[in-house]
Amino acid sequence: MLAKRIIPCLDVKNGRNVRGVKFSADKDAGDPIDLARRYDAEGADELVFYDITASAEKRDIVAALVRRVSEEVFIPFTVGGGVRTFEDIRTIIEEGAEKASINSAAVRNPDIINEGSRSFGSQAIVGSMDAIRRGEEDESEGVWWEVVVDGGRTPTGKDAVAWAEELVQRGAGELVLNSIDADGTKDGYDVVFTRTVADRVNVPIVASGGCGGPDHMFDVLDRGQASAALAASIFHYEQYSIPEVKTYLANRGVTVRPRLDLGL
């Protein structure tokens, strides 16, 4: 059986962790490689590096990070955050990441999805979106979700479900759905949004935003039909470890990958 994936997200800037991370005294709290190694050792199925570097050297900084990660960590990883051009995608893939995640740039220039998937394959191109819930459940028109860009600040008028279909049609091999309403609340993912998109497209869906614990992951993987659940804070601040999450999910009948230690 294909396992549901648990994906820690690391926020990095200028090659350093952004969030404060508790570490034992001998560890460098700022080095994302240390954190990536820890997640790998705990049995994370994949990692996402979300880069918020805003300098002119961004591409070189990202390239150096990707190169180091691929030397140290033998699980798949994705790089997102300000991926704007074909050259950005090429750098990320050629330095050793599995996937480049494209968000606002795809809204502004949708052809980047076609170009990326044509050159590197659909499996390398993740269509990522931030969405906000609009309307009320009891209104005749019901709820819909609007795509927003620039980290949630700029509304686009785009319907998120239709945009998801377009991203897939253009060649995205996977979608990350980040709910701006849920993000940071720890009240759970937007399960209805996730399920609505999952029912409309045939590629794997990664749910993002709102995770406060393993019960939320269960909901979005089960009712939400997500293939993977992404979380940041609960792992960064060690509220839950990856083995704890996986044990919880396994006990509720979800197929997860146990960590296999062959001493290598």
Binding site: A3, G173, N202, V203, P204, S227, L260, L262
Partner: peptide
């Protein structure tokens, strides 16, 4: 869902030196 993306298990049909020390049912990234 296509592509299949993620960790899935192998069920070993016959022994081979390539799989020495790899347990049946081990997960790999596809």
């Amino acid at each position: 869902r296509i592509p299949q993306i993620g960790w899935n298990q192998i069920h070993i049909q016959r022994e081979t030196p390539l799989l020495a020390g790899v347990p049946d049912g081990a997960f790999f990234y596809f």
